[in-house]
Simulated scan of single mutants.
Amino acid sequence: MHDHPAELDYEWPTCVTPRCNRRLWVAEASRWACRPCEDATGRRIAELPGLFTQLDTTAMLMKGASRITSATSGSKTPPIPPRLDVLNLVGPGGIAARLAAIEDAWRKTLGWTVAPWRGNPAEAIPKHVAFLANNLLWACSSYEEVGQDIDDVRRLHVECAALVSGEKRPGRVQIGVCPTVVDDGWCGTQLTASTGSHRIHCGSCGARWETLGEWRELRAAQERVLAEAAGVAA
């Protein structure tokens, strides 16, 4: 999969997971995703059915709703659940559908038929989870697009866990473009930073800034790029 040519410009393979991109160990050189990403994804997949069970309750769906009775509303029809964020995860287009999309992509690559379990999310999710868990090693080793699937599972798990725990997701702010030098000039991807983390990661070129000193280097590099661009324009 990853050849080792004699040319001096050979680049050692890195993990394809967007938030990882670390160099693979020698024993991992034939893989697409590293073992730590595989292990973390396996844990997240295993926790999704339990998170779904906690979310798929009347109490969770109605959390924060005003008490409305037939005496005051004139109707015995219950109000629409105010927690649309929860409903979006436990409903037909939520957790089950997002896991099914990953499973179908893996099955297509393997030459298998699409997942036969559809319909009720409560019944389908354990089936999807079992399939993904059983084939995760294959995907990390042989499926080139596995990095995006790993990131999709991570984001799905974060959404579910945040709602179950009642945590507010940290906001993100734009902090300028990525100044990393690439083959055709400089990256230029819009960077964002989370209010809940000190790490900055470019999803396009994989560059990272994690310490205060690296943040200062990032700002200085951005200013140089802007100055050069202004000079060219002038």
Rank of each mutant, 00 (worst) to 15 (best):
L48G: 02
P49F: 01
G50Q: 07
G50W: 00
G50K: 02
T53M: 02
T53L: 11
Q54M: 08
Q54F: 01
Q54S: 10
L55F: 05
L55Q: 06
T57M: 09
T57Y: 04
T57K: 13
T57R: 15
T58M: 08
M60H: 08
M60W: 01
M60F: 00
L61P: 07
L61K: 07
L61I: 06
M62N: 02
G64Q: 09
A65W: 04
I68S: 15
I68H: 05
T69R: 12
S70L: 12
S70I: 15
T72L: 10
T72G: 15
S73M: 10
S73F: 06
G74V: 11
S75D: 14
K76V: 06
P78D: 11
P78L: 12
P78K: 14
P79F: 03
P79S: 08
P79M: 12
I80N: 10
I80T: 11
P82L: 11
P82N: 13
P82Q: 09
R83N: 09
L84I: 06
L84K: 15
V86S: 01
V86L: 00
L87W: 02
L87K: 03
L89N: 04
L89Q: 06
L89V: 10
V90T: 10
G91N: 13
G91D: 07
G91Q: 06
G91V: 05
G91M: 02
P92I: 04
P92Q: 04
G93S: 15
G93P: 00
G94R: 01
G94W: 03
I95L: 14
I95S: 01
A96F: 03
A96C: 06
A101S: 07
A101Y: 11
